[in-house]
Structure formats: C-alpha cells, structure tokens
Nucleic acid binder design. Structure first.
Lengths: 233, 233
DNA sequence: ATAATAAATGTAATAATTACATTTATTATT
DNA sequence: AATAATAAATGTAATTATTACATTTATTAT
C-alpha cells in the first residue's frame, strides 16, 4: 500500500480487521466423471454440513502456500496444480466474522490421493452432478471454478493434471466431454489433440476398457507450447 | 470458512491478523498509446514515489465496492469497467505490515475523467512504456494486468471501455495495436471486427485525423455475444 | 486543378474446422 | 476353429476462417 507507516496518521494502525482464508476447490477425474473433494464438518455449528476445504492464511505463508498446505494436509500430495480462482469478499458472506476468502482450484490425480488421510478428514469425492449443498458461498465457488476450468480447457491443454501419467486417448476424450458437458467427435478430437504435438505415444496398450486395448500416451512437457487449443464446438 | 464460531475452539478468535487492501490498475487510451493512472505519494515514507491507487478494504464493503470507491474518489467516475486481477500475498510484500492486496484493473475513458480531482490527488497518466518505478510490487501488478488485458482482448471484445462512446475503426485498430504491441492489417482487422456484428455504424464522420474523415461507430451492447474474438496475430 | 493524406475496400491462397462411417484388434462364446 | 461382441483407430470431402497483399476514394490545402 501507499501510505505512511510508523506515523501518526499511519494507515497501518487501527485498521478494521478482516480475516483472510483460503478455500480449495479440488477436482479429480475417475475416468468417468469429474469429481470434487469436499468434507463434512464434524464440529458445531453446521456439523454435518458439507464444505470446501479451507484454512485461514497464516502470517508466515502466502495464499499459494496456504492452499498447498491444505492440499497436502488433506490428500498427502505435494506439487499439485493449483491456481487462484478469485476472491470472495461479500460483507456478510460469513455470518461469524468479516472474512474474505481466496478461492483456489486444484487438479489432482484422484488415484494418487492418500485415502487414509482423506477419510481421516471426513472428506469425500462427489460427482459434480451429485454435489450436495455446501456451506456459505462454497457452491458459488465450485460453479466459478468449473467455469474457469472450461474456459481454460478451451484455450490451453489443461486437464492433464487430472489424468494419470499414462493415459489413453479415449480417456482424455471422456475427460473433455465431462468438462464441456458434451459429446465430441473422436476423429476430430484426436486429430486436433495429436496435431498439437505434445503427446508422446507409447507402444503399451491399456486393455482395461476394451478387448482391442488403447495405446497409452504421456504428456510431453518439453513440447507444451502456447499454441492455442481451441475447442469451439 | 468451515469451523466453529462462538466456541472455545473457535477459528475466528485470535487469528493472526492480515490487512487487506485493494489496488487499482487503471488503464486509459488517448488515441495514441495505452496509459496508466498512477499517483505520487505526498507523505512520508516513500514521499515522491509513484504508486498505484489503493485503499484498505472497509468493514462495510466488498472488494469490488472498495475498488469502485477508489476509482470514484480519484477520477470522479462511476460505472467503470473493473475486474479482479489477482491477489498479492507475499509475506514480505509490504515491509510495514502483513498486508495482502487484491489487484483490480479498470478501463476508463480517459477524456471523461475529472482532471481537477486527478490533479488534486497528485495522479498522472503515464504511457506504459514510460512508466516509472512504482512502490512495493506495483510494477508486477501492472505487468500482470497488461498480460490479462492482452489475454482478454484476444478472446473477447474488451477495450471498448477505453474508447469514447463513438469511435472510428482506425481508432480501435490503434488501440488493439497498442494492446498487442504489433501492427495489424487494416483490411483483415476490419473484416473480422465487423463480422462480429456488434458495431453500429453512424453516418457521421470524424475528420479530426484525416481529410477524408472516418465514420464513427458505436458498440452495440445488445449484440455482444460470446462469439470468440480471436486475434492470433 | 493538383497534391497530399488517411480511410475504405476485395480477392485469391492457405489453413482450420466440421461432418460423417468403416475397419481393426482382441476376447469371449459356441 | 469360427463367430459374435466390443471399443479403438482411422480418412476424406465440404465448409469456414485466416492470411497476405495494393488500389481507389473522399476530402482539404495549396
């Protein structure tokens, strides 16, 4: 900020206090539907209500660090893809205190999360279309995060963070169909995706969902570029 | 947030306090270059340093309202286009206090701002390429806001907020050339822009910059759609 | 009447997107 | 051993969007 410190008219003294929290919108993909990790409050008030996972920001960490701390606490995972969504600052959004929240959305490989930790925290994976009512403005946060995910997916190869290291083309097509909530033509989808040159094909087939089996691919981070990734349809 | 209030183990009590500010990155366009409104601190410390315009968020307002309040204070304008950029929360970003800032960028019609108010606040319009060093992380905020503006301009018809109600096609082309920092082909630019069908042509010519004169257009808010507005360059 | 200036315009070549149906590899069944 | 079943893999033609590129037009000043 811009004004004097350690002065009589200090802008830093006696400011009306606002609490700052971080809430995480955690997406996962189980090869069928997009899912969200939410948890059930085990203490009063609002015991039994579903909520996003959050925390107040601490003195010694920035918002990003706070988000990653929460993600590690609840899933055991580090190096998770996480980006700031937006802030939520309505005056009365939290009836208990004047508290603004920085929403962060994260994409994780659902099969890699530590199930014991998740259970210990009373957290559950919900399909997005079966998501229960959440506390405060958390449903709005989820809606905003989904919009952001769609917007990003149109223009950049996001979503690989939701897939295992090796994945098949039908798998990633299903993911995109889930994100956009529409069927995609497999010939056009594959043509587009492969033309972007950031997938490396392996000679290994995954036969878990067909007799023929589908080749496994991996994301080639070397080759990821700015080239736009525009799905208009 | 998710935890108990008015309880012994309340999450709302004794939280380490964080101040929350809003800083505004205010863009304008003078028909030649993109400009930014910054102001010169008139009090110690850092007297004479250039700074974005900001304020602490108040108890009775959300971040958006705080931003609009600042914009009104400094320019006299209401109903300004303003969007949240991102938060800045590095632990030591402000040596005077633990203070996070919510960056908001705004687009204003430079000719409409109240010059007396602007002067009274010690504010000046700088061309982006002549921008001085700003306090704290404000230069980073400007950089991020410019990136965002570019990104948005590629995909949506942003930028009309920077132009007067009636503007010419050469004028808007110059604006886009400033945003993208590259020359655009006028035939292709006009073809694309007009094909999107959200400009209404008037029969009035603006002769301020040529003998022939250029027709004035206005933005047709009715017709603005989602259609993408992609300038690949 | 002429020169000067910036605005307005068109077309052909290339690239990207869309729409659409058949063949292939494999396993399970008979 | 042959057949049925299943999902994966593939190609092409039509349409649409983008790019590259130069001349004409309207007006004012000389």
């Amino acid at each position: 900020m811009e004004f004097a410190k350690n002065q009589q008219n200090s802008w830093y003294e006696n400011k009306e206090q606002v609490l700052v929290a971080v809430d995480c919108i955690i997406f996962g993909f189980d090869n069928e539907t997009l899912k969200l990790l939410v948890f059930k409050r085990e203490i009063q008030p609002l015991k039994g209500s579903w909520s996003l996972i959050g925390s107040f920001i601490r003195q010694n960490e920035n918002a990003n660090q706070a988000g990653l701390r929460i993600l590690k606490d609840i899933t055991g995972l580090e190096n998770i893809f996480m980006e700031e969504l937006k802030t939520y600052s309505a005056v009365d959004r939290d009836p208990g205190a004047r508290c603004i929240s920085i929403g962060q959305y994260a994409l994780i490989r659902i099969d890699e999360n530590n199930k014991e930790l998740v259970n210990k925290h009373g957290a559950f994976w919900f399909s997005l279309d079966e998501l229960p009512e959440l506390v405060l403005d958390h449903n709005q946060m989820v809606k905003d995060a989904l919009d952001r995910l769609r917007e990003k997916a149109r223009f950049s190869p996001i979503g690989f963070e939701l897939l295992p290291k090796y994945f098949t083309l039908p798998q990633i097509q299903t993911l995109y169909e889930q994100i956009f909530q529409k069927r995609l033509d497999s010939r056009n989808f594959r043509k587009k995706l492969l033309s972007l040159n950031f997938l490396k094909k392996t000679e290994i087939k995954d036969k878990s969902s067909s007799k023929k089996g589908a080749y496994l691919y991996e994301f080639d981070y070397e080759k990821e570029t700015d080239q736009s990734f525009i799905f208009k349809g």
